[in-house]
Design a protein around this nucleic acid. Sequence first.
RNA 1: CGGGCCGUAGCGCAGCUUGGUAGCGCGCCUCGUUCGGGACGAGGAGGCCGCGGGUUCAAAUCCCGCCGGCCCGACCA
Length: 426
Amino acid sequence: MRYSQLFGKTTKDAPHDADSANASLLTQGGFINQVTAGVYTYLPLGLRVLTKIKAIVREEMNKLGAQEVLMPALHPKQLYDVTDRWEKIDVMFKLEGAGGREYGLSSTAEEVITPLVKAYAHSYRDFPVALYQIQDKFRNEPRAKSGLLRGREFSMKDLYSFHLTEEDFLEFYEKAKAAYLAVYRRCGLDAIVAAASGGVFTEKHSHEFQVPTPAGEDKIYIDRKTGEVMNKEIVPETDLENEKKYEIVKSIEVGNIFPLECRFSKAFDLKTQGQDGEMVDIIMGCYGIGPSRVMGSIVEVHHDEKGIIWPKSVAPYQVHLVTLSSKDATVNGQIEEAATSLVDELEDAGVEVLWDDRDGVSAGEKFADADLIGIPLRLVVSAKSLAEGSVEWKERHEQDARLVKLEDVAEQVHEWLEAPERLTSH
RNA sequence: CGGGCCGUAGCGCAGCUUGGUAGCGCGCCUCGUUCGGGACGAGGAGGCCGCGGGUUCAAAUCCCGCCGGCCCGACCA
């Protein structure tokens, strides 16, 4: 992709009202554009990142044995009458349709998935089953804030599992927990599991996935003796300020998983006859990750004073090629030629390249933009590098560049892509 | 939903106190000079001063109402 053709440019100045690092850097870098409070358009660069995060989530969900579906975002009120949640979900956007029919915009989907499973699963042979979707969710937050971290419309992967027995549920729950940790690890986030209140559904604990960072709005409590990690809901009130007992760490919640027990299966009468002829209520769990929030979190954790530092796995492009033009037309032609064949070679091999081919833009400006956009590997082709038959190689997290012979670049890029991530957290 | 700050060119801001022909920086267009860490000169385009009402000879400026954005708090199955 030629940067000169890319829709969405960088800007030197941060938006005046951006509060968080993710809001300002993603806006300045040309990844997202705010439409209204808590609502964003993803520009080509930002959409690539979001798509990669979703792909990682999909892979891990599929590995878990879950199947992807897509449910509507427009939910009829009647479904919520069944569970008595129409008034209880206070963040639900509610609207009126033709003939005075009432609808809510999806903030979660138990009310749709439970009847769906009931429609297709009629025998114990149809269980267990796990279904997920990746969809925009809507929550009428009283206060949207912090860029992608708390929006009113945001991307969410919601998974629901259905089991005949508690044991089977628990086994799946633990596997889901591991899958979640794998998602975060692959996205460059060190998430830890915190126990949380089960809310209104269960006596059991639910679990949150928390990424410790000073930018976090949440707090987790780590018991200094047992190492147990908790969110503040389940820490005794008297212990909330007790720094002797708990290490208190700021963090961002990037996902949560809930045992739902039979709350929804009972409401929708989802049950089946077991092998022994007994009717059993289906045991459910739900599991959520917000890819857009993950994207914001990655920026919070991986940036420096110059811009974003994307992990290879989610970077919008893997390689940022910069060409620096020369006053000598012949040399210029050579630079163009070398760059073109390098891009072709890399792209043919499946490497994603953003080529800053802009004319009349100074080297400093191109470098500043590359740092801001944060693609993990920068290659420079210039008169200087060509004199050595080389390109200049600099990883985003490094200070200094080194020269790599043109003919070796593609191979070294492959080795680099295979190598484990070396990220410095902010 | 309570409290506060803010809406002026694409972006960042000044002007408002004390009403009188709308400015600066960045960005953008043209020409020339530059050409490895956000270059320089010259010329130029671009405004319903958030919206509506009021006061006044005259409103970006004063008054009232509304809309929007952000911050603190509450909230966050």
